[in-house]
Computed example of a mutant assay.
Amino acid sequence: MERTAIPRVKICCISSIQEAWTAIRCGASALGLVSHMPSGPGVISEELITKIVASVPPPIATFLLTSSQDAQEIIQQLRRCRTNTVQICDRLELGSYQDIRDALPGISIVQVIHVTTEASLEEAISVTPYVDAILLDSGNQSLVVKELGGTGRLHDWKLSAKIREQVDVPIFLAGGLKPENVAIAVKQVAPFGLDLCSAVRSNGELDENKLKLFFQQLKYCTQEFSPGFN
């Protein structure tokens, strides 16, 4: 089998400087910081997001998760929070990705696609030219109270794999990932990155032992698929 790199790992719903550093020590290369959402876990104030970001060393990607659908609102959020990446969890309806790039040239833009039907593939293909990466998640934008992530549910990884094959930007996979299924996720989808939250928490708090177990399983399964990988 073709050699496979170990996917990068983003730990989401970071709620303190301590949690940020626990994730970094265990091997996370990206942290998710959740601003206002219509539902779901991990929401913290923009003031706290700014404090956490200030404590994180430059090699680590800091993702601002936003539910805003307005490019100008997102620009203002980013200026306040000072993350180096924005994760747009809903469809952008006012303004454009280019507006964000023009205002903040150094910011990476990650668009969430909630994988539900074949229409998700079309949506992913349509936004690919304008973003730096796509994050495939298990939310539902059609509910009265939108689910924009943090559901802990799996979605159809066959469809995720099809999206990954047809777009030319990095793919992050989210939704229900845990030590027991990470090998299947890596083998089936071959994502650039993995995004997780609930599987590495106990009573809502980031659990260092669960984090270590996840990273051990990830390394093991990648070595299994790619003999000789170090």
Rank of each mutant, 00 (worst) to 15 (best):
Y97D: 02
L148A: 09
Q18N: 10
D132Q: 06
S142F: 12
F225Q: 14
T4F: 12
E46V: 03
D102A: 13
L104K: 09
R80P: 00
F192G: 01
V169N: 12
E118D: 14
I134M: 01
D102E: 12
P59V: 12
W157V: 03
A119Y: 09
V145C: 08
A133P: 00
Q69I: 11
T66W: 03
V56E: 05
K219F: 00
V169T: 03
N209L: 08
I171E: 05
T128H: 04
F214V: 04
S96A: 07
G42F: 11
S67R: 02
V56M: 07
L65A: 13
G32W: 03
A124S: 12
P41V: 07
P41C: 08
E118M: 09
L64E: 02
F192D: 01
R91K: 11
K212T: 14
P227K: 10
N203R: 13
E118N: 10
C197L: 03
N140L: 03
N203V: 04
V144F: 10
Q217G: 01
G193C: 02
G27F: 04
T62Q: 01
T62W: 00
I75G: 11
K162R: 15
L33I: 06
V56T: 09
A5W: 01
D102I: 09
G40S: 10
I24A: 13
E165G: 06
G152H: 05
E2M: 11
N84Q: 04
D70E: 12
V182H: 09
L177I: 15
L65P: 00
Q217N: 12
M37T: 14
C81A: 11
V34A: 08
A61Q: 09
V131I: 04
C13G: 04
L65M: 11
S108L: 08
L213P: 00
Q18K: 13
S39Q: 05
E2K: 13
I88M: 04
K187H: 06
G228Q: 12
L173M: 05
V186E: 01
H155N: 14
F214Y: 14
Q77C: 08
S138N: 06
Q141I: 09
E147N: 14
F63W: 09
I113D: 03
I113Y: 02
L154R: 15
